[in-house]
Structure formats: C-alpha cells, structure tokens
Amino acid sequence: MAKKVVSNVKLGVFVLAGLLFLVILLYMIGKNRNLFGSNYVLKARFENIQGLVTGNNVRFSGIQAGTVKRIDIINDTLIEVTMVIDKKMSKIIHKNAVASISTEGLVGNKVVNISPSKIPDALAKDDDILPVKKAVNTDEIMETLYNTNSDVAIIAAGLRTTVERINKSSALWNLLNDESIPENIRISFASIRSTTGKAVKIADDLDKIILGVKNGEGSLGAILKDTSLVKNLNDAILTINKVGNEADSVTVEINKLVKGVHEDVSQGKGTVNALLKDSMMVKKIEASLDNIQKGTDGFNSNMEALKHNFLFRGYFRKLEKQKKKAQ
C-alpha cells in the first residue's frame, strides 16, 4: 500500500513537471507575443512588407515592444501593418517615430523597427499611424554604396590636405627641433603625423573595398541582404570621418600653439610663460591625439569585422596575396 502511494506521488511529480514545462513554454511565448498584459495598437503603411507576417516582433530602438497583429492590403501600393504594442511603450513612442522593416540577423525573422526621431512630436496614441522609412531595395543599396564611396573619397581628400598642412607647417617642424620645448610635447607632435598618415591610408583602403564590392569582387547579392555588414561599413566611414576632423582640429591647435609660443618669445614674455601655456595646450593636444588613436582603433575593429565576414574573406585573401607578390 505504501509502495502504491509512493508510486502515485512519483507519477504526480512526473506529470506536473511535464505540464509545468508546457506552461512555462506557453507563458514565455505568450509574453513575447504580448498575449498577456495590456496593449495598444499602432499602425504603419508600407509599400513593401518584405515577407513580414503576423506574429513577427516589433522593436523600438531594439527593445521588444510588441508584435504584428494584422496585415491588410489597402491598395496595390500600400499595405497596412497593425501592431500590438506593449502599454509600457506608450510613454516612449512618439507620433513621428519611424517604422521600418528589417531582418533579424542573417537568416532571422522579419521585424518592424520603430526608431525615434531626433525632435519628438506628441506621444503616439492608440490607432495612430506611424510614418515609415522606405524599405531598402537593391537599387537603393547600390546608390548607398555609391554615396558611401564618394563620401569616403571626400574624407580621404580632406585627410590628405590635413597631412599636407601638417607637413607644410614650418612652425611645427621648427617646434619639433626646438630643444626648449619639453620632450613629451614633441613626441605628441610626431605621433600626430604618423596617425594622420595612417588614417589616409585606411581611407584609401576602404575606398578600394567599396569599389571592389561594386565591381563584384565581394558577393554583392549577399552584401545586400546583410544589414550588419552595411552597418559595419557605415560605422567604419563614420569613425574615419571623425578621425579626419579630429586631426584637422589638432593641426589648428598646434598652429595656434606654435603661434602663441612664437609671440610670447618675441614679446619677451619668457620661456616660463610659454611653458605654462604649453602644459595646458599639451593636455588639449594629447586628448585630441588620444581621440584620433581611439578612432583609428575603432575603425580597425570595424575593418577586422569586415575581414572576418565570410563575404569578404576571399577579397581580403586576394589583397594579401597581391601584397606578397609585390614584395
């Protein structure tokens, strides 16, 4: 009899454990799908929904915000997507937030992304229709790549002038050889030259890559699908641009500094004054140099990511081979 009770208890635990897992499973999915808790409805009208289906996730700046509830065809060029949004989001999503459709990862589901715009409008209410960002299609990506390409060219050109300016700055050269100026400043000045030089080279590289992609050396079809890749490219361009700007401002600072030092010396204010000024200037310059360094590092890591992306692997290998041959 006792044996029977024990086995009944075991059976009970067994069944409950199984059902518990089912409940957890359904609850977690339900939570993700927003079947529980209170919601409100937002809509967006797209020209092309790229295979979005009901039940797909809606994200607000990457935060899970809700799910797609319905998809209605309004007319041959407009499709209305009805989204169920978590009530918590009602204090965050504004009327002018932009909805767009993208893919999660390389082979992931479609998601609706809602991104805030810089100047927020009133908060979005139930049944509001959000503006949409047009879906990126192949032509547009080609255009983007072209623009990216010309952007990079401009940046590279800018960098080149910066380097020129530095190289031409006789004041700087004098400074570097002036033994009255502390060693650390001189080292900083020297490194700015090499850093900017590097930046130029990187920008050129990038330019080449993008050209290469456009000419079909990378798998263009794949690149178009891989949003993270495009993001990598864009990030790389942004950072290199920053580096250029930074380098530019450093050069300006240096020129200012040199001018100041010269003036002080010529007005007989003495080296002490000059040195005092120096140390402040030096800090400023050093900070700038640091930024440049970080920028190039960031750029390099983006480049690394690109290199490791399997789409580009072949391309980079080819580059290396060419280099070896050249040597």
Binding site: L25, M28, I29, G30, G55
Partner: peptide
C-alpha cells in the same frame, strides 16, 4: 530559445 518560438511551434 523562447524568443524564437511561437505557439505554432509548440
């Protein structure tokens, strides 16, 4: 795991 599951999977 849960994020990528739907009722229609379970």
């Amino acid at each position: 795991v849960f994020d990528n599951l739907a009722f229609t999977d379970v």
